[in-house]
C-alpha cells in the first residue's frame, strides 16, 4: 500500500540527528532499516509528520569488543549480527537469536536498534538481551543514558526512549568460562514472530554444577520476562537434564501470556515450560562441550 505523506530529514552526523530530534522529536519517527516502521506506515497505521533517517550517519554500524563488553551499533543489521565471528565466539546467543528473526531479506535490512526501539512483545532479541542483562545506550543533545534492556522495554511497543533520544548502541557481555547458550523459538509458520521464544545461558563451574543460569522469554507477556524461578532453582545445583526438567516447570510462574488467533494464553504458558527445558538442555550440552575442551 501507499504511505501517507511526510517530510524527511537525512542527517549526516549523529549531532545533526540529535539536534533534529530535539526540535522535531515529538512529531518525528526515526527510520533505521525500516523493517518495523515502514510496514506500519504502508498500512497507514503510523503517519508521522517527520521522518529522520539515520542510515546515512557514518559509524552507527559496528560490532566490536571494548572494555570487556561487545558494543553493537544501532544500525547493525540482524544479518551482520548473525554472521559476526566475534559474536559467534564470545556471545553466540545473540547471533543465534538474530538468525531466527524474520527472513533473509528482513535480516539484511532490519537493525538491532530499530527492532529494540519498536519493542514488539513477540520479537526475538529482547529475550536474548534480557537473559544477557544487556544495556542500551540512548543519546540526546543533552547527554547519554545507559539502561538495562529489561528496564528500557516497558510494554508492548513501549519503551523508555524519550522523544529527543536516539538509541545508538547495544552492549552485551563477553561470555567466558564454561558457558553454553541457546535460543529456542516456537512458531507455527516459518518467518513469523515467536509464539514463545526462550533464550538460555548456562555457565558451569569446573566441577560441572550450574554456576550461572539465565533464562528469558519473549511472546509471553507485555515485555520480555526473566524466568527467575528457574534460575534460582538451578544455580548452585549439580547440572543435569533432570534438574532442568524440574526447574523448567517454574518458567510459567507468574506468566500471563496473551491470547490471540494463533494460540491461547494457557498454551503459551505450557509451551514456556517446554521451550525453557529444551533451551536449557541445549545450553547445558554446549556448556559441557566447552568445559570439556577447556
Amino acid at each position: 500500500m501507499y504511505p501517507a505523506s511526510f517530510k524527511v530529514f537525512v542527517p549526516k552526523s549523529l549531532d545533526e540527528a540529535l539536534e533534529l530530534l530535539a526540535k522535531y522529536g515529538e512529531e518525528a519517527k526515526v527510520l533505521a532499516g525500516g523493517h518495523s516502521l515502514i510496514p506500519l506506515m504502508r498500512l497507514r497505521l503510523v503517519k508521522p509528520k517527520y521522518v529522520i533517517y539515520i542510515g546515512k550517519i557514518p559509524g552507527l554500524s559496528y560490532i566490536r569488543e571494548e572494555g570487556g563488553v561487545i558494543r553493537i551499533g544501532a544500525m547493525t543489521t540482524h544479518n551482520e549480527i548473525e554472521e559476526s565471528q566475534l559474536l559467534k565466539e564470545k556471545n553466540p546467543l545473540l547471533s543465534e537469536t538474530a538468525s531466527h528473526i524474520g527472513d533473509l531479506q528482513v535480516r539484511n535490512m532490519g537493525t538491532i536498534g530499530g527492532s529494540l526501539a519498536h519493542a514488539d512483545p513477540a520479537a526475538d532479541y529482547p529475550a536474548a538481551l534480557t537473559a544477557l542483562e544487556a544495556d542500551v545506550v540512548l543519546k540526546s543533545a543533552k547527554g547519554e543514558r545507559v539502561l538495562k534492556v529489561s528496564d528500557f522495554i516497558q510494554g508492548p511497543y513501549l519503551t523508555d526512549l524519550r522523544p529527543d533520544e536516539l538509541l545508538v548502541e547495544v552492549r552485551v557481555p563477553v561470555l567466558s568460562g564454561a558457558f553454553g547458550t541457546s535460543y529456542k523459538k516456537l512458531y507455527f509458520r516459518a518467518g513469523d514472530f515467536a509464539i514463545v521464544g526462550v533464550a538460555a545461558l548456562v555457565e558451569l563451574s569446573p566441577e560441572g554444577s550450574f554456576k550461572r543460569v539465565r533464562v528469558a522469554l519473549t511472546g509471553v507477556g507485555e515485555k520480555p520476562v526473566r524466568a527467575r524461578g528457574v534460575e534460582e532453582e538451578l544455580e548452585g545445583k549439580e547440572a543435569s537434564e533432570e534438574a532442568i526438567a524440574k526447574a523448567a516447570e517454574r518458567a510459567k510462574e507468574g506468566l500471563n501470556p496473551p491470547s490471540d488467533i494463533r494460540a491461547s494464553s494457557e498454551y503459551r504458558r505450557e509451551m514456556s515450560v517446554v521451550l525453557t527445558r529444551r533451551a536449557l538442555i541445549e545450553a547445558l550440552r554446549r556448556a559441557r562441550e566447552r568445559l570439556k575442551s577447556q
Partner: peptide, 27 residues
C-alpha cells in the same frame, strides 16, 4: 503484499537481497 511477507519485490541492494516494498526510494 503490503505486509513485507511475500518477497515478490525482492531486489539486490548493495549486494544484498532486500524487499523493495519496505525501503523508501531515498534510502
Amino acid at each position: 503484499c503490503d505486509t513485507s511477507n511475500c518477497g515478490a519485490c525482492t531486489v539486490i541492494m548493495n549486494g544484498k537481497a532486500v524487499k523493495s516494498c519496505t525501503v523508501f526510494a531515498f534510502m
